[in-house]
Design a binder for these strands. Structure first.
Lengths: 126, 126
DNA sequence: TTGCGTTGCGTGATAATGTAACATAGAGAG
DNA sequence: CTCTCTATGTTACATTATCACGCAACGCAA
């Protein structure tokens, strides 16, 4: 089941809601219900194969190889595309900031909303 | 209405769901419905008086003075407390990373889950 | 005054997202 | 075989969020 969910996410490329995935699974599994999908997604996100986009309530296959460190998700509010990038040193800074208050960081959620290159056109040279 | 919602959030101090707020408003407004609360929250988040915690589906009064730049929300997964901090230079870095792909950043969501000083200080394996 | 646009809110319905609780099925160890 | 563990199926429900419509209040200009 996890493999099927992962395949759907990879094939689609972009973010999908749990219920989009549910619909995609229905042809093959007519009787499928939400808990099955959520369980598969939980296992996949735990394993680092899938990211959850908290600000979209959606899920996306992790591109590239598994990394322990979290990713920066750049979300285009215009076309809905999402780009994944990493910046380990930035994560470290972030953890350090939290640690100043005795906070022990375990999971980073970093999502940047904006407009992607395609949608933004070409101006805005800063 | 916005003022009432803001007062409730400030008084509580921590994060509240929209429906928690709804319940808090019910004594004074017996006929209140979800759209009213969501409209007030939308206006308050737009104005920077309230933060939305995307990974909790909750809302929190902004502490300190209004800042244009986004905040880093440190969320304790144990006790639910949330600390707000800022790091403008880190935001800048983050925007810069996104800009490498031609992405124009407009809104940053940065939420760090972990264990706060109070909860982590004591040994607990609940 | 009247008319007009804007804004905020009420109302009812419904959509979208997520979980709890318990039942079932199959693999592997002893 | 039987026990146990894990994954999944199943039913029902809980939580979070939005849509569409209408109305009342306000400011403001003719």
């Amino acid at each position: 089941m996890r493999a099927e969910v992962l395949a759907i996410l990879r094939k689609h490329g972009g973010p999908l809601s749990a219920y989009d995935i549910l619909d995609a699974l229905r042809p093959a599994h007519p009787k499928i219900a939400p808990p099955t999908v959520y369980r598969a997604l939980a296992a996949l996100t735990d394993g680092g194969d899938v990211h959850r986009l908290e600000s979209l309530n959606a899920f996306m296959a992790c591109r590239g190889q598994h990394h322990d460190h979290a990713s920066i998700m750049s979300i285009c509010d215009d076309c809905g595309s999402v780009d994944e990038s990493t910046a380990p040193e930035l994560m470290k800074e972030l953890s350090t900031i939290a640690e100043k208050f005795g906070f022990e960081a375990r999971r980073h959620v970093i999502e940047v909303h904006g407009v992607c290159a395609t949608c933004g056109g070409e101006e805005t040279s800063r």
